[in-house]
């Protein structure tokens, strides 16, 4: 059985920027073979030069990416996809505007070919607070945000600083455990979503060294910083993963291999507040990469979490 394909669910109400984000990801796949599942092709502005061909509900894009319209049967689309010869590297599901992304996430547990990587929900900074109080859809929007592992506070270019700050205070109050990141035009760096594997192979952590570099960004959206930390000592992997997923770190994601207390190497994965610990592939080197919005990353916090005696101190 091949490794399950990571799936990221993109939720958010109508107009929050889901479609723009999907399009952005397709343009910045950088060699990752993406499959994007959308409710319908209606407003999806895929550049014509990206399209290699269309076969009914599937649009083939350059670089091995595909975009599928699932209409009213997502489970059938996922099943069709898993029966294909070559599975994509990563799947994004764009939930419909009134769908609850958590329910989609649960249905993924029914398909062995897939693994829920995380639920990212967009919030429109210009409307989210008033919409969350709206008579008909207010509770739907709150339930969508409640399902999020990571919230993308989008359209920040359209609000003043006070309103942006008011949104953050509101998110902190309503969703105290969910990290959020800033965004403009849904341009979130693709590395925020894709597997950190490529970064892992590039970094060669030596004992007690830390590297930090800034990821490239395309637009005036916020900068993301990645931090590589070596964790050579034995550590309670679940404890570390849960700590990394704590909102105070505001991590967008983290991935790493650590020696667990049972003397086995484990893979730690974090997307926002979601974390998992699974047996690591054979031959990996211990180490951890964390990604956060540049101004939110507290290197000090992460470092102290990764110290040998951290669990006793914190």
């Amino acid at each position: 059985m091949t490794n399950p394909v990571p799936v990221t669910i993109i939720g958010g109400f109508l107009g929050s920027g889901k479609t723009t984000l999907v399009n952005h990801l397709l343009r910045h796949a950088n060699g990752v073979r993406l499959a994007v599942l959308v409710n319908d092709f209606g407003d999806l502005p895929i550049d014509a030069d990206l399209i290699e061909g269309q076969d009914g509900d599937v649009i083939n894009l350059s670089g091995g990416c595909v975009c599928c319209s699932y209409g009213d049967d997502l489970s059938l689309s996922l099943q069709t996809l898993q029966e294909q010869a070559s599975l994509p590297d990563h799947i994004f599901i764009e939930a419909s505007g009134v769908a609850l992304p958590g329910a989609i996430g649960k249905s993924l547990s029914l398909l062995r070919a897939y693994r829920l990587e995380g639920i990212v929900v967009l919030a429109d900074a210009t409307t989210v607070q008033s919409m969350a109080a709206e008579k008909y859809v207010g509770d739907t929007i709150q339930r969508q945000l409640d399902d999020a592992d990571l919230i993308v506070l989008n359209k920040l270019d359209l609000v003043c600083d006070e309103q942006a700050q008011s949104n953050r205070v509101w998110l902190d109050g309503c969703f105290p455990h969910t990290p959020y990141i800033d965004s403009v035009h849904s341009t979130v760096n693709a590395d925020v979503f894709f597997d950190i594997k490529r970064k892992m192979t590039n970094c060669k952590p030596s004992a007690h060294s830390h590297t930090q570099d800034t990821l490239q960004v395309d637009h005036a959206s916020s900068l993301f910083t990645s931090l590589s930390v070596s964790v050579d000592h034995m550590v309670d992997a679940k404890w570390l993963a849960s700590q990394l997923a704590d909102k105070r770190n505001m991590l967008v994601r983290a991935k790493g291999f650590v020696l667990d207390t049972d003397n086995q190497i484990k893979t730690i994965q974090v997307v926002g507040r979601r974390w998992s610990v699974t047996p690591a592939p054979i031959g990996v080197q211990a180490g951890l990469v964390c990604i956060a919005q540049a101004e939110s990353l507290s290197e000090e916090n992460i470092r102290s979490l990764c110290k040998p005696d951290a669990q006793q101190i914190i």
Binding site: L14, G15, G97, V98, Y136
Partner: peptide, 11 residues
């Protein structure tokens, strides 16, 4: 808990 919308009001 209250049920689900199958269409967005805007749609």
């Amino acid at each position: 808990p209250n049920g689900l919308w199958y269409i967005a009001p805007e749609q």
